[in-house]
Design a protein around this nucleic acid. Structure first.
Length: 807
DNA sequence: AGCACGCCGACT
DNA sequence: GTCGGCGTGCTC
């Protein structure tokens, strides 16, 4: 029999190992080695985890038989990665300039990722002092790499070389299944019948057990269920086992994330004309198995979710599965609940609040095919659904769909890829679609569906008033509340209605400054102004976690006149308690929602009307649906406009439109007040008139003139090194190299230092490419990444497609 | 990542 | 001379 080989991606994320390696499949594990299983292989001088890509391949021409090693162990009985995921990982590695193995790891729950340890064991002549130092005084010890310093490891290896110590690599398979004790009823009816006849009259519990057994022959129940259902003591079960009525066994125990469905089944709502048209188009594509991409553009409150849910119902009725992506599941507990209410146990929810164990259990439920709908944020796009019939990307414009750290990817793009793979339609939904998606709909690449009316019969979009804060400041001095907003707040609150106040802090946070010399405390790592935190009475750098006490005397000029500038939610809350002391406020920001469940609790309290005012940062703008909210106030609309980002207007328009949509969703009319220092800015005036189309046209003209997306695709090439001079020289070299080799129609900006040039002790330079065809520089950039491997130690190069932040 | 190889300085 | 520090390169 010919030798068969497998292609394996090893769990060593480096540039040179970013390709499959060939291994020999030993005869005795021939059947177990399949594409998608995890294996243990020897690599270099150690054992590592590997992912099998392909089996039954020939020995590559450039390899001799004796150069190839054996696969050591197979870690899975069944593949944990489907062929789809293997293909997808390759595609993502190619187009996003990251390691294939990093994408493979992303597709699996943490429980299935390798955890490497070393087992150190004392040998005969180990000195007691060394035993204490390295083995904690024991015979053997399991250690992780980070448990010892480099120097200590060197010494450990020396001891091993001298034969005083042995080192063995251990890979923990955490994918073990938790079991619980269960009892299975015998299928032997005769035995049960005989037992009943010979039973003594006084044996009441045994009689009860026996009659239950006769009703459920062959069935298995956990011990907990037995005790609850039959109402017998544990000892009776043991007697049952002794008599042969029951067989003890271990069954798989599944953790279910606590009560997600509320129990009540949500009624299917009647669709209005717009919704029906959208529903018909999407369901036609589901039935025909067309990989159409729909852009569902619906004003806030127009009932997009109802269209999603009914379309999902249709796909499920056809025996297919649905992937439902939401921007940040923590921010949309209401959406999560609605899906769970509609689809009950057939729903799996993946969110950041799950423990590793819960996540693994949910992942297994999905993989086993029991699940019909998966709801989740970005990484849920890799959910192991085999029969996808519909993919929904809600709030498709949200930047959280894009992962900016390595490995970079866009969940929206992955969703489109999977839709094409499964011949399933993809619905991108938003009240304010990204210009990229809207432009594609314009060109007919996506099919545009619009919802123009609010779903609730009486609900219309609220009128929006823009208040010029320059006037307010002249009249009232330093305040966060204009007279207009304050009066409206009093009116609405007096009527028992609720208000949402948004403090847009993007790019603007409170800081400390000396009034005499202008000194602003900066952190030494990043050289950025530090943010004031009153709760801990410290200054913090928001980029590297550096902390320092608030200075009382200026370190620069010795003055005592240190003042606080800027506005935070805390400061606004304090002002609110002064001007409207009779109304309690619920605050929603990063500080108050850090704790698990705090966000959901705050929203539940607001829903239960424990407070009439909800004050928060951007997280109050999204997805909230409270029918008694009739007033929305935006305290500072323009803080995002000053950012050096070509998407600043788009983001501001989005935020204002989204938050305005929180008002008047029920039967009572709502209104919105926007406070600003730029009352004439088009992002504000178009938002005021709920005019997405108008904004789209104007912004497209500006993008066209500036040669920005969606007229161009962008790729960011970021260089960094702890030495500023070195990174400047390196990125200049890269710039020259690229300029020579890039296709002529590719525009190149830079290299230039980034706006935040120094971060966590590293200096950053960037080059920005603008391309007409998204992949025209891919091969060249892969080559560049490859070459950068040979640059100075500490030099890092990151290539990012469609970056969200530019400067 | 880790381990070997190989090149340089401080010691027997 | 040789031991050992660490920079460089490769792992089927």
């Amino acid at each position: 029999m010919a030798l068969t080989y497998a292609q394996v991606v090893v769990d060593v994320p480096t540039q040179q190992t970013n390709r499959p390696y060939t291994y020999l499949i030993p005869d005795e594990i021939q059947d177990e080695v399949q594409p998608g299983v995890r294996v243990l292989v020897a690599f270099g001088h150690r054992s590592v985890l590997g992912y099998v890509l392909k089996t039954g391949v020939d020995l590559p021409a450039d390899l001799a038989v004796d150069q190839v090693k054996d696969i050591l162990t197979v870690l899975d009985d069944h593949p944990v990665l489907s062929q789809e995921m293997l293909d997808l990982s390759e595609e993502l590695a190619q187009t996003n300039f990251s390691f294939q193995v990093s994408f493979l790891a992303l597709m699996l729950p943490t429980a299935l990722k390798a955890s490497y340890k070393k087992r150190l064991r004392a040998q005969a002549d180990l000195l007691p002092a060394d035993r204490v130092a390295y083995l904690d005084g024991q015979e053997e010890r399991l250690v992780k790499t980070k448990d010892f310093s480099a120097k200590e490891w060197r010494q450990v290896r020396q001891l091993a070389a001298a034969g005083q110590l042995s080192i063995e690599t251990v890979i923990e398979n955490k994918g073990r299944i938790k079991t619980e004790l269960a009892y299975q009823v015998t299928s032997d009816q005769d035995l049960l019948g005989q037992a009943e006849e010979t039973l003594r009259k006084s044996a009441k519990s045994q009689a009860a057990l026996l009659s239950f057994c006769q009703e459920h022959p062959g069935e298995t129940f956990t011990k907990r269920d037995w005790l609850a259902q039959v109402d017998v003591a544990a000892a009776t079960l043991t007697t049952g086992v002794k008599n042969g009525w029951l067989v003890k066994r271990q069954v798989e125990q599944k953790r279910r994330p606590g009560a997600m469905a509320s129990g009540k089944v949500e009624a299917v709502k009647v669709l209005n004309e717009d919704q029906q048209r959208a529903y018909d188009a999407v369901t036609a594509a589901i039935t025909a198995k067309e990989k159409t991409t729909f852009l569902l553009e619906g004003i806030t409150g127009s009932g997009k979710t109802e269209v999603y849910l009914q379309a999902a119902q249709k796909a499920i009725a056809q025996g297919e599965q649905v992937l439902f992506l939401v921007p940040e599941i923590a921010l949309t507990p209401q959406m999560q609940k609605r899906v769970a209410d509609r689809f009950g146990d057939a729903t799996a929810v993946l969110h950041s609040g799950l423990s590793a164990g819960e996540r693994y259990d949910e992942w297994r439920r999905i993989q086993s095919g029991q699940v019909k709908v998966v709801v989740g944020a970005r990484s849920a796009v890799f959910a192991p659904l085999a029969k996808l019939g519909l993919i929904i990307v809600d709030e498709e414009h949200e930047t959280s769909y894009s992962q900016s750290e390595n490995p970079h990817y866009s969940a929206r793009d992955v969703a489109l890829w999977r839709g094409a793979y499964h011949q399933a339609p993809v619905v991108l939904g938003s009240a304010t679609p990204s210009l990229e998606s809207r432009a594609r709909a314009q060109k007919g690449v996506y099919q545009l569906l619009t919802l123009t009316k609010r779903a609730a019969a009486a609900a219309t979009l609220p009128p929006v008033e823009i208040v010029d804060m320059r006037q307010t400041v002249v009249l009232k001095g330093d305040t966060n509340f204009s007279t207009e907003l304050l009066e409206k707040l009093k009116d609405h609150l007096a009527r028992g209605e609720q208000a949402v106040l948004l403090l847009n802090r993007r790019g603007f946070s409170s800081f400390v400054m000396c009034r005499d010399c202008g000194y602003v405390p900066k952190d030494p790592n990043c050289n950025l102004a530090m943010t004031l935190h009153m709760d801990t009475k410290t200054l913090k750098c928001h980029y590297c976690d550096f902390q320092a006490p608030i200075p009382h005397i200026c370190p620069s000029c010795g003055s005592k006149r240190i003042r606080y500038y800027g506005t935070g939610t805390e400061k606004v809350q304090e002002e609110l308690s002064r001007v409207l002391p009779e109304y309690p406020v619920i605050r929603l920001d990063q500080d108050t929602t850090k704790k698990k469940g705090a966000m959901a609790q705050a929203l539940a309290d607001f829903g239960a009307k424990k407070a009439q005012i909800l004050l928060g940062t951007q997280m109050v703008a999204k997805g909230l649906d409270f029918e008694d909210v009739t007033l929305v106030g935006v305290l500072n609309a323009d803080t995002g406009l000053g950012l050096p980002d070509f998407r600043a207007s788009e983001k501001t328009f989005e935020l204002l439109t989204q938050v305005a949509g929180r008002a008047g969703r029920g039967d009572r009319a709502g209104e919105v007040v926007i406070q600003t220092f730029n009352p004439k800015h088009y992002a504000l005036t178009f938002a005021q008139h709920h005019d997405y189309e108008g904004f789209y046209r104007q912004e497209m003209a500006i993008r066209h003139a500036g040669e920005f997306p969606p007229y161009y695709y962008t790729i960011q090439i970021q260089s960094s090194h702890p030495n500023e001079n070195l990174v400047a020289v390196q990125s200049a070299k890269i710039g020259l190299w690229l300029r020579k080799k890039l296709p002529k129609d590719v525009l190149m900006l830079g290299p230039s230092p980034q706006a935040i040039a120094k971060l966590k002790g590293r200096y950053y330079f960037q080059i920005l490419l603008k391309l007409k065809k998204p992949h025209e520089a891919d091969a060249l950039l892969r080559d560049l990444v490859d070459r950068s491997q040979k640059a100075e130690a500490g030099f890092q190069l990151s290539v990012k497609r469609d970056p969200v932040t530019f400067m």
